[in-house]
């Protein structure tokens, strides 16, 4: 059955694995996936809020994992548990804070230009999915806040029929959403968002007038670090 050496080219061209690999590498060659250069216009503090959002998400997942390791009641009873609960809360506040500033910045840059519509869409959906991710956390707290939020927010869910399958007063269900389903959704969306940014590159500035494209492209002939991401086919 097996033969020495690589399989014949005809067999390879039919391989799903090969197609996925070649498609992936074509869309995101390694130097584009992990670039070591950025266009020179990427020079403002506003650019740090995307990575700050991701960093906050990493701290959220880290602190949340520690809380999950010890179970949902641990943080009420121990100082260390309360400490990690606080980290979890504040990283969520920082996450939303950074996302909002990132969002404002990207809006005023019209960062969807040049075929980057999907970058905006995945970012916006991430923000919207993060809201129930936070809500299910609030109702998983097992304290008065959780009781009140669950009994109040249930009416909104029920009014649109969602209460039939998303019951805020069911702790077990909310905890599952909070520690598994919604975090997975947020992480997948952020992953797609980042890959799309890497694929298309950071959106270039608006052109000020018609003469300028020639002037801007003249810069390409001059020195600088290896433009590993130039020639982007976005």
């Amino acid at each position: 059955m097996s033969s020495v050496g690589p399989p014949p080219a005809t067999a390879r061209s039919k391989s799903w694995t090969v197609k996925v690999r070649e498609g992936g590498v074509a869309a995101l060659p390694p130097e584009k996936l992990l670039p070591d250069g950025q266009p020179t216009y990427v020079a403002s503090w506003i650019y740090v809020f995307g990575v700050a959002s991701i960093a906050s998400l990493i701290v959220i997942i880290g602190s949340g994992s520690i809380l999950a390791l010890k179970g949902p009641a641990w943080w009420h009873d121990t100082g260390v548990g309360h400490f990690f609960n606080s980290i979890h809360l504040w990283s969520v506040e920082l996450f939303f804070f950074a996302m909002v500033v990132h969002l404002w910045g990207k809006y005023w840059m019209a960062a969807w230009r040049g075929g980057r519509g999907r970058v905006w869409v995945t970012g916006a959906v991430t923000f919207l999915v993060a809201i129930p991710a936070a809500l299910t956390g609030y109702v998983s707290q097992q304290n008065f806040d959780a009781q009140w939020i669950a009994t109040q927010a249930k009416d909104a869910m029920n009014s649109v029929g969602a209460g039939a399958f998303f019951n805020l007063t069911n702790f077990g269900q909310m905890y599952s959403y909070h520690v598994l389903l919604l975090p997975v959704a947020v992480v997948l969306l952020v992953g797609a968002h980042v890959l799309l940014v890497r694929r298309h590159g950071v959106v270039p500035p608006f052109e000020l007038e018609k003469k300028l494209p020639a002037a801007a492209s003249a810069g390409a002939e001059t020195d600088g670090p290896p433009p590993s991401s130039t020639g982007a086919t976005s």
């Binding site: 403002s44 503090w45 506003i46 740090v48 809020f49 500033v101 404002w104 910045g105």
Partner: peptide, 12 residues
């Protein structure tokens, strides 16, 4: 703070 940080981010 969100507004302040946004302003600082584009001005600094």
């Amino acid at each position: 703070l969100m507004f302040l940080v946004f302003l600082l981010a584009i001005l600094l």
